[in-house]
Simulated assay, not measured.
Amino acid sequence: MDERMARAALCSVAEPGDAHLNELIEEHGAAGAVEIIRSDDPAEAHSRRWRIRLAAANPEQDLFVCEQLGGRLVCPGDAEWPTTLDDLNRQRPYALWIRGPNDLRYDCLRSVAIVGSRAASPYGLRVATDLGSDLAERGWTVISGGALGIDAAAHRGALAADGPTIAVFANGVDVPYPASNDGLFTEMARRSLLISESPPGTEPNRLRFLVRNRVIAALSRGTVVVEAERRSGALNTAAWARKLGRMLMAVPGPVDSRTSVGCHRLLREDATLVSRTDEVIEAVGAMGVDLAATPRAPVLPRDRLDATTRAVLEALPARGSAGPAQLAGKAGVDLATVNAKLGLLSASGFVERSPSGWRLTKAAKTP
């Protein structure tokens, strides 16, 4: 059995990211690991457990089905293998089953994971969609888990901007889970990428959802948690991002929102607060290049006045009126200057004449 076929078989033998199996592969190669599992070595307790699965494995059929789907198996060392996965060391995938036209390694060069609650609020869905769309428009790949809520919103946002997006499955790439996202997955398989550590036909289980989170974190340059409850799979992805040295970001929410409790906890610990795409790109982009612009307050008409004119305007009382001599003393300018500036302020709609002098217009009193 060659190495590629052996890795295809091993994906059916052990749960994803098993450290002991990765040790066997590292020491003996994938084909060698298969032979050890087939042997009756009493020292290999793990192999006795995996032998039953190996007997039932059919890697040739799995590869055929994947090819019929327009997919492929990508192994460590292949040109398409993202080297960031090697940061997982002995918990890295044995191989990845991929469905879709894009190149996985290329798409991951500039990528951000967006994760969060399945039971997302309208606020969270809007934020995730906007982030996914804006990142895609600016050439960044959006990575998530294909789940309901935040994940699906981020994927849809990227697709709406005609950008790349990657869903990391806990099941086979031909198994739509959740079923309600079948249309989304069909579109992603046509335009982007679906990936899994498990062969086609594999059904999801609870453990695999947590295990796949390490792949989401490892593939991306940073992870944004949009919404997360106190106990959330998104927090597991956040923990992996920390462990791998990736940038961890969180979006704040209403202080009384149950779906933002996890985000607020991350922000109290070590996550970077982000509220817009510029801030996400600044966090994961090139140092000194992808800097977010500083938000500016709106420019008001009075902001465009020169210093002397503004001094005369500010000398006018909030209520009532004042004469030119009073204004001159308060503004610290001569009477001729006050009269000239009052004419200018009147023409601009800031002041108006009154029986006892000059007063502010209603528009000038509005902040």
Rank of each mutant, 00 (worst) to 15 (best):
A6E: 00
E27T: 10
R208E: 09
R110D: 06
D87R: 14
A336V: 09
P164A: 13
G320F: 08
L248E: 04
A43D: 15
D40I: 00
V65A: 14
L104T: 00
E203H: 09
A153I: 03
R310C: 01
G116K: 08
H155V: 09
A292C: 12
L300Y: 14
G332S: 05
G332P: 06
R206T: 08
H264F: 03
D334R: 09
N58F: 02
V168E: 02
D334A: 07
G233N: 08
V173W: 02
S117T: 15
A328F: 06
E60S: 15
Y106G: 00
D162I: 03
D162A: 15
R90G: 10
R231S: 12
S111Y: 01
A286N: 08
S198Y: 05
A8R: 01
G132K: 04
L104F: 06
W358T: 12
E3Q: 15
D290L: 07
D86E: 15
R4Q: 13
W140L: 09
Y177L: 03
V333P: 02
T294H: 09
E26R: 15
P298D: 09
E35Y: 01
V112N: 04
R268F: 05
L248Y: 06
R191Y: 05
P122C: 11
L63K: 05
G71Y: 05
A228N: 08
G285L: 07
A271M: 09
G116P: 10
I114Y: 02
D306I: 11
L291G: 01
G71S: 11
N171Y: 01
S257I: 05
K362P: 00
D103R: 08
